[in-house]
Amino acid sequence: KRPMNAFMVWARIHRPALAKANPAANNAEISVQLGLEWNKLSEEQKKPYYDEAQKIKEKHREEFPGW
């Protein structure tokens, strides 16, 4: 399985609240909304998620060399 990128790290945190706020929305609609919200963030706001994604990527590389 591929390691999460910065957007996926961010979305994992924000998806539950968005789903709760929009109970009639299906998963595809929630994903679209998450994408729109992510694109509104500044690079500075995204930086912690890029940092976390890098850590996940490095850990994945250690656990699965050659993947």
Rank of each mutant, 00 (worst) to 15 (best):
W67P: 15
Q33C: 06
K59W: 09
Q54T: 08
A6L: 00
N5F: 05
A6H: 00
R61Q: 15
E52L: 06
E29Y: 03
P16C: 03
F64A: 15
F7E: 11
N5C: 11
K1M: 12
D51Y: 04
V32L: 11
L41V: 00
E63C: 06
P3D: 14
P3K: 15
K59T: 10
K40Y: 02
M8E: 15
K46Y: 00
R15T: 05
E58G: 12
H60E: 10
K1W: 02
A11V: 02
K57F: 08
E52I: 05
P23N: 05
I30Y: 01
D51G: 04
N26L: 06
Q54R: 12
M8D: 03
R12N: 13
I56F: 07
V9C: 11
I30G: 02
Y49D: 00
E29L: 03
Y50G: 03
E29N: 03
I30R: 01
G35V: 11
I56R: 05
L36D: 11
S31K: 14
Q45M: 01
L36W: 08
L18A: 05
I56P: 13
A17I: 15
P65K: 10
E29Q: 11
A17G: 07
S42P: 07
I56A: 05
N27Q: 13
Q33A: 10
H14M: 06
L41I: 05
A6I: 04
V9G: 03
R15S: 08
I13L: 12
A25R: 09
A6M: 00
N5S: 14
Q54F: 05
Q45W: 01
K1P: 03
R15Q: 13
R12E: 14
E52A: 05
R15G: 14
R12Y: 04
K55E: 12
K57R: 13
Y50S: 04
P23I: 00
N27H: 07
I56S: 10
I56E: 09
E58K: 02
I30D: 01
L41S: 00
W10N: 01
I56T: 07
A19S: 08
G35H: 10
K55R: 14
A6R: 00
A19Q: 15
R12H: 12
L34R: 01
W67Y: 07
D51H: 08
W38M: 00
G35D: 15
Q45V: 05
I56V: 11
D51K: 10
E44A: 11
D51A: 09
E52T: 06
S42V: 00
A11P: 00
A19F: 09
A25H: 09
K20M: 13
P65Q: 10
G66R: 11
G66V: 11
R61L: 11
L41M: 10
E37I: 02
I56N: 14
A25M: 15
M4T: 13
K40A: 09
P23H: 03
E29S: 04
N22Q: 11
K55S: 10
P16K: 09
A11E: 09
L18H: 02
E62T: 15
K47W: 04
N39T: 09
N26G: 09
N27L: 04
Q33R: 09
L41G: 00
N5Y: 05
A6D: 01
G66S: 10
E52N: 09
P16L: 09
I30S: 02
E37A: 12
M8G: 14
